[in-house]
Computed example of a mutant assay.
Amino acid sequence: FKFFYTVPRFHNPLGVSYTRNQKKAIAQLAAKYDVYIVEDDYMADLEQDTKQDPIYAYDNTSHVIYLKSFSKIIFPGLRVGVAVLPEVLCESFNRFKRLMDIDSSMLSQAALELYLKSGMFERHRKKMRSCYGKRSMLLHDSIIREANAASEQHYSYVPASQLGVHTYLKLEDNLRAEQMIKRLQKKFIRVEMADSGYLPYFAKKERILKLNVSSVKESDISSGIAQVIREIR
Score class of each variant (00 low, 15 high):
Cys90Asn: 12
Lys117Ile: 04
Ile102Tyr: 12
Pro54Cys: 04
Ala226Gly: 06
Asp103Tyr: 11
Pro54His: 04
Arg145Gly: 02
Ile181Pro: 03
Glu206Asp: 15
Leu139Ala: 04
Tyr36Leu: 03
Lys24Ser: 04
Asp103Trp: 06
His11Leu: 03
Asn148Leu: 15
Tyr157Ser: 04
Tyr201Cys: 01
Tyr155Glu: 02
Tyr168Val: 08
Thr19Ala: 05
Val16Leu: 09
Lys32Trp: 04
Ala83Ile: 08
Ile74Asn: 04
Pro54Arg: 03
Asn60Pro: 01
Ser69Tyr: 12
Ser118Lys: 13
Gln162Glu: 10
Ala177Asp: 13
Ser108Met: 13
Gln109Pro: 00
Lys32Val: 01
Gln109His: 05
Gln227Met: 14
Thr6Val: 14
Lys187Cys: 08
Asp103Asn: 13
Gly197Ala: 06
Tyr58Met: 07
Phe96Tyr: 15
Ala57Cys: 08
Asp45Ile: 00
Ala110Thr: 13
Asn21Phe: 06
Ile65Gln: 02
Asp53Val: 10
Thr6His: 03
Tyr5Ile: 11
Pro200Asn: 09
Lys217Val: 00
Asn212Trp: 00
Ile229Asp: 00
Phe202Gly: 00
Phe93Cys: 06
Ala177Gly: 01
Asp195Tyr: 13
Phe70Val: 03
Gly224Phe: 00
Thr19Ser: 15
Ser156Thr: 15
Ser142Trp: 03
Tyr115Arg: 04
Ala27Ser: 15
Tyr157Cys: 03
Lys23Ser: 05
Asn94Phe: 09
Glu172Asn: 15
Arg129Ser: 06
Lys186Asp: 11
Arg125Asn: 07
Thr167Tyr: 08
Ser151Asn: 14
Arg145Val: 06
Lys23Gln: 10
His140Cys: 03
Val38Thr: 08
Leu139Gln: 01
Cys131Met: 13
Tyr201Glu: 11
Ala30Phe: 03
Val158Leu: 10
Asn212Ser: 10
Ile208Gln: 00
Ile102Ser: 11
Ser62Arg: 14
Pro13Val: 11
Tyr58Val: 01
Glu206Ala: 13
Ser136Pro: 01
Val64Tyr: 02
Gly81Val: 11
Ala194Glu: 07
Ser108Ala: 14
Thr167Ser: 13
